[in-house]
């Protein structure tokens, strides 16, 4: 047991500590403090040194850079939920995490780096092709979030790196229709049993320019397949009914829930069918419920 902890005051200091000691960052602590708790009156015990990064203001921002919305890793779910510039699905996912008190602590960086298959934010983020930027004392790199998360609770984070920010590319033209739904273990303050995010962009003639969807809690990591999405792309909304089953079967094959498979598969199928049927019906609502 190593009992070392640091409270860096700047990002630079944090990166130096990270490089020198390999200390793991603790942001909101809502995953780490729970995972390593040892009961009342006992200091949680971590198998590695820890640095508390929750006060690094440098990591708390939401801004527009060109065609991207960029969210600093230390931004809380509460700040994300409150910011109208954040795309709908991400904002909604943030607003449905835990409860008020959790969202005031939990960060996007923690949610992404914890890489739980049940985490909520990676679902719409991966659907939108979000990228992550990682920094170290010696440089930085940017990669797709879908590549950064390598498996359940596994990421490609290097020992000297920190997550700096999450970058969400905004679609050229706003989605015509979006869907986000979380099924929790109860109506509030709940971990996801399943979540599904989907979006479609139609051109003026009703052709599907872009379709995308991603599932949480349905496999070792967020389930998404651009191959399967292609089944719908280029089709006219009027053709949806005829390709729906083929699409749903193909989508089903990318899910690998380890528990409650029937429930997770069937609910996903129904939600996607519902979303696409609404789209096909010519609904004017951008947000489909």
């Amino acid at each position: 047991m190593v009992e070392t902890s640091y409270i860096p005051q700047t990002l630079e200091e944090a990166l130096r500590i990270r490089k020198e000691t390999g200390a793991k960052p603790l942001a909101g602590g809502t995953d780490l403090m729970v995972m390593h708790r040892r009961g009342t009156g006992v200091v949680p015990s971590f198998p590695w040194p820890v640095m508390i990064i929750s006060s690094l203001e440098e990591l708390k921002y939401i801004r527009r850079e060109g065609d991207d919305i960029v969210i600093g890793s230390g931004t809380t779910c509460h700040a994300i939920e409150d910011d109208p510039s954040v795309p709908y699905a991400v904002r909604t996912a943030a607003s449905l995490m835990g409860a008020e008190s959790l969202r005031n602590l939990a960060t996007i960086g923690g949610n992404v780096c914890n890489a739980s298959p049940k985490a909520d934010l990676p679902v719409p983020l991966i659907m939108m092709d979000a990228k992550v930027t990682l920094v170290s004392a010696t440089g930085s790199r940017t990669l797709l979030l879908d590549e950064f998360i390598t498996g359940p609770k596994e990421t490609d984070l290097k020992d000297d790196e920190l997550l700096l920010e999450v970058r969400i590319p905004l679609p050229e033209k706003d989605y015509s229709h979006v869907w986000y739904r979380k099924i929790g273990t109860r109506k509030a303050n709940a971990i996801s049993k399943l979540s599904l995010s989907a979006a479609v962009t139609l051109d003026a003639d009703g052709f599907i320019k872009d379709f995308r969807s991603a599932n949480g809690a349905s496999g070792p990591k967020v389930a998404r397949s651009t191959e399967v999405e292609k089944i719908l792309e280029g089709k006219n909304v009027t053709e949806i009914p005829s390709v729906l089953e083929q699409f749903l079967d193909a989508y089903d094959a990318i899910l690998s829930p380890h528990a409650m498979p029937t429930y997770r598969r069937l609910s996903t199928r129904r939600m996607l069918a519902h979303f696409l049927t609404e789209v096909a019906s010519g609904t004017q609502n951008m947000i489909v419920t």
Binding site: S5, L26, G29, T30, M33, V34, R37, L102, N104, L105
Partner: peptide, 9 residues
């Protein structure tokens, strides 16, 4: 802001 202190170092 509301927080739960069992999770905060």
């Amino acid at each position: 802001r509301l927080i739960t202190t069992c999770m905060v170092p």
